[in-house]
Simulated assay, not measured.
Amino acid sequence: KMAADTSVEILQKVLENEILQTTKVVEEHLDAEMQKLDQMDEDELERLKQRRLEALKKAQQQKQEWLSKGHGEYREIPSERDFFQEVKESKNVVCHFYRDTTFRCQIMDKHLTVLAKKHVETKFLKLNAEKSPFLCERLRIKVIPTLALVKDGKTQDYVVGFTDLGNTDDFTTETLEWRLGCADIINYSGNLMDPPFQSQKKYGTSFTKLDKKTIRGKKYDSDSDDD
């Protein structure tokens, strides 16, 4: 017992020392930043303020441009022709190929609705696979649901079924967000090396990764199961 108590005390001291060192680094950084501000004259402070205001203004203008192109909401497009127009307008597009009779499409809808509002930088769409036979044939979409991840008019990646999402119907919105972040189709702020779902050894993290596959005519292989 004494040995165990000693080990605990040593561990506590090590942790306390690490915390103190981290705190010291943060304080030194803050002190340096404060010193910079103190050394600035009024003109320099005014220029700094203007640069920040310009950056905020530019970010707001960009957001308004995205919203004007249909970003910020998860919506259905009626036809294949609309698909090509939509991906032409926006740099980053997530398109859910769904079918009314497939229950898992409703699960995907729920998560995409949340992410569309959070990630305004990306356009989120859905298209009925039964009404888009040309696209489904060209993209070789056999599994429903499938997400086509389109960047600069080219399909860069696919999320086929729930395989990359922990292989479960109960995956979280954060898991799908992480998967889209891996494809660089959204601005992901988390750690890509740390998937939100647990038991990675059980589920695996293999992706149906495709590089620079164009929308027109490129193919990929997948399972033929559609549920």
Rank of each mutant, 00 (worst) to 15 (best):
K1C: 15
T6Q: 13
S7K: 14
S7Q: 14
V8W: 12
I10Y: 08
L11G: 01
K13Y: 02
Q21E: 13
Q21G: 00
Q21W: 03
V26A: 10
V26F: 08
L30N: 15
M34Q: 14
K36W: 08
L37E: 15
L37D: 11
Q39L: 15
D41H: 11
E44K: 14
E44H: 05
E44T: 15
L45A: 07
E46I: 09
R47C: 05
R51E: 15
L53A: 14
L53E: 07
Q62Y: 00
K63Q: 08
Q64R: 12
E65W: 01
L67H: 00
L67R: 01
L67K: 01
S68P: 01
S68R: 08
H71G: 06
H71F: 09
G72E: 09
E73G: 06
Y74S: 04
R75M: 04
I77R: 09
P78C: 03
E86W: 01
E86F: 02
V87I: 12
K88C: 00
K88A: 06
K91N: 02
K91A: 03
N92P: 00
V93Q: 02
C95S: 03
H96F: 02
D100I: 04
T101C: 10
C105L: 10
C105E: 09
Q106Y: 12
Q106N: 14
I107H: 06
L112I: 13
V114E: 14
V114L: 09
V114N: 10
L115V: 01
A116K: 09
K117Y: 03
K118M: 10
H119W: 10
V120W: 04
E121G: 10
T122E: 08
K123S: 13
F124P: 07
N128G: 05
E130T: 15
K131A: 08
S132K: 08
S132F: 05
E137R: 13
E137Q: 12
E137V: 14
R138K: 14
R140N: 12
I144N: 09
A148N: 04
L149V: 04
V150Q: 06
K151F: 00
D152P: 00
K154Y: 01
Q156A: 05
Q156L: 04
D157Q: 10
V159N: 05
V159H: 07
V160A: 06
F162T: 08
T163D: 11
D164M: 12
L165K: 04
L165N: 11
T168V: 02
D170L: 15
F171M: 05
F171A: 10
T172K: 12
T172P: 01
T173I: 07
T173Y: 07
T175S: 09
L176F: 08
E177G: 04
W178M: 04
R179D: 07
L180D: 03
G181D: 09
D184L: 13
I186T: 07
Y188S: 12
S189W: 14
S189I: 07
L192N: 12
D194N: 10
F197A: 09
Q198I: 08
Q200V: 13
K202N: 06
Y203S: 07
Y203L: 01
Y203E: 03
G204T: 03
T205G: 00
K212W: 02
R216V: 12
G217W: 02
K219F: 13
K219R: 15
Y220E: 08
Y220L: 12
D221L: 14
D221S: 13
S222L: 06
S224D: 11
D226R: 15
D226A: 14
D227N: 15
